[in-house]
């Protein structure tokens, strides 16, 4: 069995978001780039499955779409433990184009399980996983919070409103995963970092595909008015304000 994780290179979650060029571009100045948090958890889970499967999972690969500048992120994925990596050499902000490129790159590679994070923390599209599934004509399960292989069959838990469902899927399939899939992301060991340098990172040139959307401009949320402080000995005042001023209770 072969597992593929779709990785997105995103700004660190503590990044202060700013825009330049008349609010038409994200200001990447001084930004630390990381593996999208859900993708990192997905990779961690895939490695756990490989280690516990007694050989059933032969390989864990990662794929990303991006220019050479995203290589530190993909090397980190290799350092965490992925066996090999694919980088599709293209710059894109549109999920449709990214998914199309990923699908095109892996359609003949025979992956049994393809995993994508529920969303990327930059554009919040929640789109790539579902789109890859549709491009490849595969079944997909979204909002997956646990993934196991039992007697060669894949068993997932997906979150629904107010509960969860246990599901099975025929293979190959695409899992779109969220929090819970692994508890903590795995941190690369020194040995892992050394080994990552020697692992295969295949760069492939993109197929000719077009995006469907473009980002024309950005806005920051309106600034908040100063916080009204309330005496802790007089929280009755807070209740009155919530009723008369905010009108929320």
């Amino acid at each position: 069995m072969k597992i593929l994780i779709c990785i997105s290179n995103v700004p660190d979650t503590t990044t202060k978001i700013r825009f330049v060029d008349d609010n038409t571009k994200f200001d990447t100045n001084g930004v630390q780039w990381i593996i999208n948090p859900w993708d990192e958890l997905a990779l961690t889970r895939a490695l756990q499955l490989k280690e516990s499967s007694g050989g059933a999972v032969e390989k864990v690969s990662v794929i990303t779409v991006g220019s050479k500048s995203v290589e530190p992120t993909i090397r980190k994925a290799l350092a965490i433990g992925a066996d090999d990596a694919i980088r599709v050499n293209a710059e894109s902000e549109d999920a449709y184009e990214v998914a199309n490129l990923i699908a095109d790159a892996v359609k003949d590679e025979g992956y049994d399980i393809i995993i994508a994070g529920i969303e990327s923390s930059d554009y919040n599209g929640s789109a790539v996983g579902g789109m890859v599934a549709e491009f490849l004509g595969l079944p997909s399960v979204s909002a997956v919070s646990s993934l196991d292989i039992e007697n060669g069959e894949v068993v997932v838990k997906r979150e629904i409103d107010g509960g969860s469902e246990v599901m099975t899927s025929q293979l190959p399939f695409v899992a779109i995963v969220q929090k819970g899939i692994a508890l903590e992301p795995r941190i690369p060991s020194m040995r892992g970092i050394m080994m990552a340098r020697k692992k295969p990172l295949n760069v492939i040139e993109p197929a000719e595909v077009a995006p469907m959307t473009e980002y024309v401009s950005y806005e920051l949320p309106p600034a908040k008015a100063a916080c009204k402080m309330i005496d802790p000995e007089n929280v009755k005042e807070l209740v009155v304000l919530l009723h008369t001023e905010a009108k929320v209770i």
Partner: peptide
């Protein structure tokens, strides 16, 4: 979130989430 991306590809429709 589970459906919109698939519909987008199926119908060649641009998606804004």
């Amino acid at each position: 979130k589970a459906l919109a991306p698939r519909i987008s590809v199926r119908l060649k429709a641009g998606l804004a989430s």
